[in-house]
Design a protein around this nucleic acid. Sequence first.
RNA 1: GGGCGCGUAGCUCAAUUGGCAGAGCAACUGACUCUUAAUCAGUAGGUUGAAGGUUCGAUUCCUUCCGCGCUCACCA
Length: 489
Amino acid sequence: MSLEQDLLAQRHARVREIEALGFKPYGQRFDFTQTLDQIVATHLSATGEELEAARAVSPTGVSVKACGRIQTVRRMGKAGFVTVQQGNSRIQLYIRKDAVAENDYALYQILDAGDIIGCDGYVFRTRTGELSIHVERLYFLSKILLTLPEKFHGLEDIEIRYRQRYLDLIVNPDVRQVFLKRAKIIGSLRRQLEAHDFIEVETPMMQPLYGGAAARPFVTHHNTLDIDLYMRIAPELYLKRLTVGGLDRVYEINRNFRNEGVSFKHNPEFTMLEFYQAYSNYQGMIELTRELLREAALAANGATVCEYQGHQLDFGNIQTMTMQEAVREFAPAGTDWNVAGHELVHKFEQYCEPNLIQPTIICDHPVEISPLAMRKPEDPRFTERFEMFIAGMEVANAFTELNDPQEQRRRFEMQLEAREKGDDEAHRLDEDYLRALSYGMPPAGGEGIGVDRLTMLLTDNRSIRDVILFPLLRPESDIGMAAKLRALE
RNA sequence: GGGCGCGUAGCUCAAUUGGCAGAGCAACUGACUCUUAAUCAGUAGGUUGAAGGUUCGAUUCCUUCCGCGCUCACCA
């Protein structure tokens, strides 16, 4: 028998012991009166004397019913300390033989780190001043069968951290904070857009034709209809159909799927915010972007400035320059910046992109790479488009939407030519989209913001996998948990 | 897909030129009624990612495979 199975068998035997003591190892509702966060916040500054005095005045004044997962157990003869964690807080429980029922003490003696327990007790401070709960009654809520990683070093194996994120979250408190911040960022984006009268909509993830970006799609199949469907690479064309329908301000925060390489800034499924505002244009999007990012930074960090991989990023002061200006500034002296088309894009990617550390809006992209954006009236080689770069990453992409169906048809045909020349990521021609435009789409500005990348920047994580709860990995070979559990029966 | 690197006990890590696979934590037994990385005494725990090869002998060298990381390409 392997060690792992030996441990599992030990723990399983403990389940029977817990039952023999009259506790249920699983499945009990527990109506705690305070969370550990509340207990810690309430008594943060109370001294031991104050807590003792409060208890003398009213025994219920400092009494609590609380619960959490055991982090460490320190047993000493006829008493001991058990540190439990719940939410963002941990607190130690003090259990002594003469203060609890016999069964409760017997239970305490067989607790393992990782068990989930509850207690009744009162709040006090130990001799060393640590806020603690003096336990008067114990409850058993859930049994751990496996063993937690080491308490001091935590879990560092990056593969296990991604594969078993639940374990990562249990033992690495910083990871929890990253995902709390992520939720705050998304909440802030929603609040800002709602405040501007945008409504949240959901458009198809499975599409008969994919579009709105240049990328290879995932293909799936619907059995009953017997058709292939594509996982969307962007929601853009559906959201713009909604502006045709009179939903003037729409947004969607959801997953896009792109069948491309995986890297520190690419995950096959990623979260995109897209929004469209009728009667606006790309200048309007620049103004809105400044506001959204400023507020997101404040929501995440309480400041518009944050540190990212050693750089101070200022989300409250976003500069703007055209793509040509960027090449003029960053390319080696003598480089011809007064170019257009793919040549300009190439020079931009080569010389500028990695150097755009501070949040920077780059505008006026060549028409060749912008099939859905309106041309600039004063120079039709370029479009009313911008992308925002931060720390060398593209974080946002926006433009004045092309709403002329004739021009859109010609752009699609340009894309078809590119496809025939071997560009298998060129846009498809979407007849229904052209039909929608032919009913008249209001002038509009639209934008997409990469939520994962924004979260990376605001949480100082260099890998997109550290801001996605379950990043895509190759499936594990045999884990055999079912067989191991069956062996315990 | 290419290049480079990594994979040792449940976890974090050692192992000298190729020479008996080790430690701490976790686990188990015992002591201890204010500890906090509790302490102290003892016990047990290994297909060194997998398969093959070279060798008297392989964690160590070679080949293939698996997984992960970094990087390049791709990702307008």
